[in-house]
Amino acid sequence: MKLVANFVEKPWGRCDLPDWAGCPAGLKAPIGELWFTAPDGAALPLLVKYLFTSERLSVQVHPDDAQGRARGLPGGKSECWYIIDAAPGATLGIGLRRALDAQQLRAAAQDGSIEREMMWHPVAPGDFFFIPAGTIHAVGAGIMLVEIQQNVDVTYRLYDYGRARALHLDDGAAVSRAVPYDMGQAVRALEGGVMEQSLVRCPIFTVLRARDADSLRAQLGQQPVWIIPLAGMAMAGGDCATVGECLYLDSPASLRLSPDAIILAAAQGSH
C-alpha cells in the first residue's frame, strides 16, 4: 500500500522544500518533517520520514528496547539516516570526541560545552549513518535526509542551544553511551559509488540501497518491506511511488522498479 504523507511544522524546518516533497499549496510555516503513515492509521513497527533542516536540531539520545520498556514504553528507538542533500559545510553531530561519565555528560549539557564535546561529521548526498539507541546525536543545519527508525515516540533532549524547550537530563544521561561514534556503522557516498549496497543489518532492521527488484527479493525473502524511491518509480499491485513517497508491502514479491529507479528498502530485523 502507498503510505500517507504527513507534513510536520518545526521551528528549525524550511519553507523552500523541493518540488518532489509535494508540500500543500499555501503552507507558510517551516516544514521540518514529512512522515509516512498507514492510510487506516495502524501503527507500523518502523517509521519512515524525511527531515528538512535550516538550523541545528537539539542534542538528543534515545533508549534501547530494554530501557524503553523499563520506562513503560513499547520499546526503544534506533534509527538511521540517508543524506539526500547537504549544503556546503553541513554536518551531523554523532557521538563524542572522548568518553564521558554520566556526571561529566550532565555538566557538559548544562554549561553548553557539549557542543564542543560532540563529533561533527561533514556530510554529502549518499552518506548513510546507523544511529543505535544510546548514541548521542544532533542533525545539523542545511540537510535533507531520509530517516528510518523504530516507531516509538521517545526522545531525551540533552541540549537545545538555549531554546525554550524542556530538557531530559536524568533520563538522557541514564541511557546514553557517551563515547565516540564507531564509523564502521557509516557508509560514505564516495565508497565506490555503488548503488546496490547493504547499508545496515542488525536485529532492529535491515536497510538496503537497491535498483533491482529480483536482487532485493533474494536478500529480503518474503518479509514486509518499506520502499523509499530515491530516483525513478517503484510499483506494486495498483500502487506506485516516486521520489518523496513511500510504499509498504507485505512482501517484496510484487515489487517492480522502473529502469532508472534507485530505492531504499527497509525491513525489520537482520536478513
Rank of each mutant, 00 (worst) to 15 (best):
residue 5 A to N: 13
residue 7 F to L: 06
residue 8 V to L: 05
residue 15 C to Y: 14
residue 23 C to S: 07
residue 23 C to V: 09
residue 32 G to V: 03
residue 32 G to N: 09
residue 35 W to Q: 05
residue 36 F to K: 05
residue 38 A to N: 11
residue 40 D to T: 08
residue 44 L to V: 09
residue 46 L to A: 00
residue 51 L to I: 07
residue 55 E to W: 14
residue 55 E to A: 12
residue 64 D to F: 04
residue 67 Q to T: 10
residue 76 G to Y: 02
residue 76 G to P: 02
residue 77 K to N: 05
residue 79 E to V: 07
residue 79 E to F: 11
residue 80 C to N: 10
residue 81 W to G: 02
residue 82 Y to L: 07
residue 82 Y to V: 03
residue 86 A to I: 08
residue 87 A to H: 10
residue 88 P to R: 01
residue 89 G to D: 12
residue 92 L to D: 01
residue 97 R to T: 14
residue 100 L to T: 02
residue 101 D to G: 04
residue 102 A to V: 03
residue 102 A to M: 06
residue 104 Q to C: 11
residue 106 R to H: 15
residue 107 A to M: 11
residue 108 A to N: 03
residue 109 A to W: 11
residue 109 A to E: 07
residue 110 Q to V: 07
residue 110 Q to Y: 13
residue 110 Q to D: 11
residue 113 S to G: 12
residue 116 R to Q: 11
residue 118 M to C: 10
residue 121 H to L: 13
residue 123 V to Q: 07
residue 125 P to L: 02
residue 125 P to I: 04
residue 129 F to Y: 06
residue 134 G to Y: 09
residue 135 T to I: 03
residue 138 A to Q: 03
residue 140 G to A: 11
residue 140 G to S: 13
residue 145 L to I: 08
residue 147 E to R: 07
residue 153 D to Q: 07
residue 155 T to H: 02
residue 156 Y to C: 12
residue 164 A to V: 13
residue 166 A to I: 12
residue 166 A to W: 10
residue 169 L to D: 06
residue 169 L to Q: 01
residue 174 A to M: 01
residue 174 A to T: 00
residue 175 V to K: 03
residue 178 A to C: 00
residue 182 D to E: 02
residue 184 G to L: 15
residue 187 V to Y: 05
residue 187 V to N: 01
residue 190 L to V: 14
residue 191 E to H: 14
residue 192 G to C: 10
residue 194 V to T: 07
residue 194 V to S: 09
residue 197 Q to A: 13
residue 205 F to M: 15
residue 207 V to P: 05
residue 209 R to D: 09
residue 214 D to S: 11
residue 215 S to H: 15
residue 215 S to M: 11
residue 221 G to N: 00
residue 222 Q to N: 15
residue 223 Q to F: 15
residue 223 Q to G: 07
residue 228 I to W: 08
residue 233 M to R: 15
residue 238 G to P: 14
residue 238 G to W: 08
residue 241 A to Y: 12
residue 241 A to M: 11
residue 241 A to C: 10
residue 244 G to I: 08
residue 248 Y to Q: 15
residue 252 P to N: 00
residue 254 S to E: 10
residue 255 L to R: 03
residue 261 A to R: 01
residue 263 I to G: 06
residue 265 A to E: 12
residue 266 A to C: 01
residue 270 S to M: 09
residue 270 S to A: 14
